[in-house]
Design a protein around this nucleic acid. Structure first.
Lengths: 187, 187
DNA sequence: GAACGATACGGAGCACTGTTCCGCTTTGTC
DNA sequence: GACAAAGCGGAACAGTGCTCCGTATCGTTC
């Protein structure tokens, strides 16, 4: 009994996740469905069919982003000029992801058990990736070696809270400064 | 130089605060402006003139309710059959007020300094009122005498979090049970 | 490769909301 | 009573969520 999904449906679902992620970063998790549909180049009906509620979509994007972020770690490490450059690039992806993560709380609007499990999934999956980037940069002598993944991810997460309250507040700038602070300098 | 407010404007503002409070309890702080206008029997323009943004309205209702709640304490105490009955009635008002209070965080959406000061105002004003009701009931031998206003208000506040997540969750019921738990019984 | 359900798609259309704007009404003053 | 000024109401517009169904595409069977 294999009523398998049609190929175009599978394709659309992937397209949607990617498009939604991009729109979330640009316009927040409350972005109009129309905008996401336009970005993905599909009709609104398609979105509602795949993700009946906004929470469904946000959760799916969240998982998708965690996975993409996790896979990007090793890739960046092997293609970047330096481990520190890889770390910077990875953090940039991570910040994009945080928009979705912070939107999750509102989207789930109380389902705290669901939220907890998604949060645990996030830590399990990304903690080690962050760790490997930190270790590589530390071993290359580019940054200090006493920074733990948890504190870094948590700190960056907190820097991103309230990002759209005030146009003068730019989390990415502060994060960049923070990363500068990790580097080892010859004096 | 007395460009005093016109009498009808003053009247409308009061009407609006009362109506908005009621609608907030019924439909939450995100209730449509139209609904509030209808409840108050005024046009939508009137609301926007008095309270340009939703945050303005929520803050005004908040202050109004804190005041009403504070004034209701002594009144209830002198008109109720017992101090405990007065306490119950007061808590009921207090729960209505909490809807507004919890909506405040969203409405202020980050202005944490403004939020802090409103929170302090609330504690200063209502703490003593709650205290007097507790003392009266304790002195009448109706409830135990080791309950502090802060813990009670805080506990009730927490019971009201997530009130509209699940229709099976009824904070007022639990609060009623909690109050029962305060009573002194002959065994 | 032709034919034909089954599956999925797109987007017009409806319902509902926030916000503005201006003709009309009420108020206060002389 | 007359007349600005202040205030009011709600029609009108714009943006959004969500549904529904005619149409297009896919996968399967011969």
């Amino acid at each position: 009994m294999p009523p398998r999904k049609r190929a175009d449906a599978v394709r659309n679902e992937q397209t949607l996740l990617t498009a939604a992620a991009e729109v979330f970063v640009r316009s927040g998790v409350d972005a109009p469905i129309r905008e996401i549909a336009a970005e993905a180049g599909v009709g609104m009906g398609t979105i509602y069919r795949h993700f009946p509620t906004r929470a469904d979509l946000v959760v799916a994007v969240y998982r998708h982003q965690v996975e993409a972020c996790a896979e990007a770690g090793p890739t960046l490490l092997s293609t970047s000029d330096s481990a520190f450059a890889a770390l910077r690039a990875w953090i940039d992806l991570f910040v994009d992801f945080l928009v979705t993560k912070h939107g999750l709380a509102n989207a789930l609007q109380s389902d705290s058990s669901g939220f907890e499990s998604l949060h645990a999934y996030f830590l399990d999956r990304l903690g080690p990736v962050c760790e490997s980037l930190l270790s590589a940069a530390a071993e290359a002598g580019e940054i200090r070696d006493d920074v733990r993944p948890f504190e870094l991810m948590r700190g960056i997460g907190n820097l991103c809270i309230g990002r759209d309250d005030d146009p003068r507040y730019d989390p990415r700038r502060l994060i960049s400064l923070l990363l500068n602070g990790l580097t080892v300098r010859r004096s």
